[in-house]
Design a protein around this nucleic acid. Structure first.
Ligand SMILES: [Mn+2]
Ligand SMILES: [Mn+2]
Ligand SMILES: [Zn+2]
Ligand SMILES: [Zn+2]
Lengths: 138, 138
DNA sequence: TACTTATTGACAATGATTTTCAATAACAAA
DNA sequence: TTTGTTATTGAAAATCATTGTCAATAAGTA
């Protein structure tokens, strides 16, 4: 049902709610693993057969812009997207099936402060991502 | 002088040491920021004018395979390479000029153990990267 | 010095993403 | 509801980065 929220977000930001966007949003929002544009295309076309790949690219672009999805970087490639977690969260990815889990509670305060002093950098952001095997795949 | 070490590594692994590879290695090894293939090409051609871009791609491929360089992921793109740090290190990147610094000493034991118990994942690897402003740019 | 063959750069081919464009449909206003 | 404006669409073409092909060259060993 959160797909409706995403569509609201689009609407509130002046974008129109179309059948194409509906299909893409429903696909991406409910996925528990990162999807590439082509994967989104294939899955979404089951809901809306006339969908074009170009529209998938354009819709993903807008969802990213609205911070509803995020790009997922992996050793094998960086063109996959997954819904954005709530608040400050990071990703834990299964190296076998791609299943994603969000986690929070990382405390890098001490580390960044120490690194900052050591290097002279003013630290503003961090990327943290864990890889492993999910309960099913281990 | 570490460029010589890289060339040795290539040689020891059955690869020939050529003028093209020498130019690429010298460029990448001494860079303190991540370079894209085209950047490597442009910089290296100052040392070896006949160099082809294709050779840059192929050389980077081999350097990565020998773990002498690593791919650097950034919001703006993921096709840049930088020398691999010694041992278990992570990158701290300047968001303004790209200047890179390595750091170590991150302790994620407690976190991964907790996440592992909570999610059921068996955690095997982690990516950590810091972004900020270097001493010059802040 | 000679010989084997890995490596080279030019060019072509591929694959992913972006741009163009005329037709369509969303939606605000009447 | 009807209408008018214009954002959005899919198809096709264009672009861009990366990879493959190939004959000529040169590295490294004997
Ligand atoms: Mn964090
Ligand atoms: Mn670490
Ligand atoms: Zn799994
Ligand atoms: Zn800087």
């Amino acid at each position: 049902m959160s797909a409706e929220l995403w569509l609201n977000q689009l609407h509130e930001n002046g974008y129109r709610v179309t059948a194409a966007r509906r299909a893409v949003v429903e696909t991406v929002e409910k996925s528990t693993r990162a999807l590439t544009p082509v994967e989104v295309y294939d899955l979404s076309r089951k809901k809306y057969r006339a969908l074009g790949l170009v529209t998938v690219y354009r819709t993903l672009e807008k969802l990213e812009e609205l911070h509803l999805i995020q790009r997922v970087h992996q050793p094998m490639g960086c063109q996959a997207f997954i819904s954005m977690g709530q608040g400050h969260q990071h990703l834990l990815l299964c190296q076998n099936c791609g299943q994603a889990a969000f986690f929070e509670g990382d405390d890098l305060e001490a580390l960044t402060k120490s690194i900052s002093k050591k290097t002279g950098y003013q630290i503003q952001e961090h990327w943290l991502q864990l890889f492993g095997l999910c309960a099913n795949c281990r």
